[in-house]
Amino acid sequence: MTIADVLMIALGAVAVGAGALVVTSTHLVRSGLYLVVSLGAIAGLYLVLGAELVAWVQVLVYVGAVVVLLLFAVMLTRAPIGPSTDLDRPIGPSALIGAGVGLGLAALFADAFRWIEYPRGAPGTAERVGAEIFGTWVLPFEVLSILLLSALVGAIVLSRPDVGRREVKPDDPRETTDRAKEEDEEVPA
C-alpha cells in the first residue's frame, strides 16, 4: 500500500458513492450535483494516475460544460425542485444487470492484473499528450471538428423551430399538388 493507493481508494470511494447517488437520487437537480462530485473525484484519480492533462480537461469540459448542460436540460424541462416519484421504472432486473456487469468487470480486472505493484509512469503532461495527439492522432482530431460542427448546427436547428421556416405551412395535400404544378418541375410517372 503506497500513498497513491490510499489516495486512489479514497477518491474511488467518493466517485463510486457519488455515482451511486446519481443513479438512485429522487431529486433531478441533486443527481446532477452528485454527478459533479463523482466526475471531480475521477479527475482526482487521473491526477494520481499521472494524467494531468486529462484531469484538467475532465474538470473543464465535463464538470464545467457537460454537467452545466445537463442542469440546463433539467431546468428547461421544468423539472420539479423537490423529490419526484416518477423518475424510475419498477426495479425489475436492472439492479441485477447493473451488479452483474460491475462485479463481472471487476472480477475480470482482478483476474488479469492481480495485486501487482506497477510503477508510476511519466506524467501525462499537456506537452506529452499534445505530442501524442498531434503525432499519431491527427486524423481523428480533424474529423472531430466536423463532428463538433455538426453537433452545433444540429442542436441549433432542433431547438430553433423557426430556422429556415417558410411562410406557407402546407398541411393541406391539395395545396401540395398545386404547388408542385406551379413549380412545373414534375414529370408524370
Binding site: 460542427l149 444540429g154 436547428v157 429556415g164 421556416r165 401540395t176
Partner: peptide, 26 residues
C-alpha cells in the same frame, strides 16, 4: 420533394447529411 414543401431547413439539412457522409467516408 419534402424540402420543396419546407419540411426542413434546406441548408442545415444538406450540411448535416454531408457531415454524415464524411463520417461514412472516414
Amino acid at each position: 420533394p419534402a424540402l420543396r414543401l419546407g419540411a426542413a431547413p434546406v441548408g442545415e439539412f444538406c450540411f448535416l447529411l454531408a457531415c454524415s457522409m464524411t463520417g461514412g467516408v472516414v
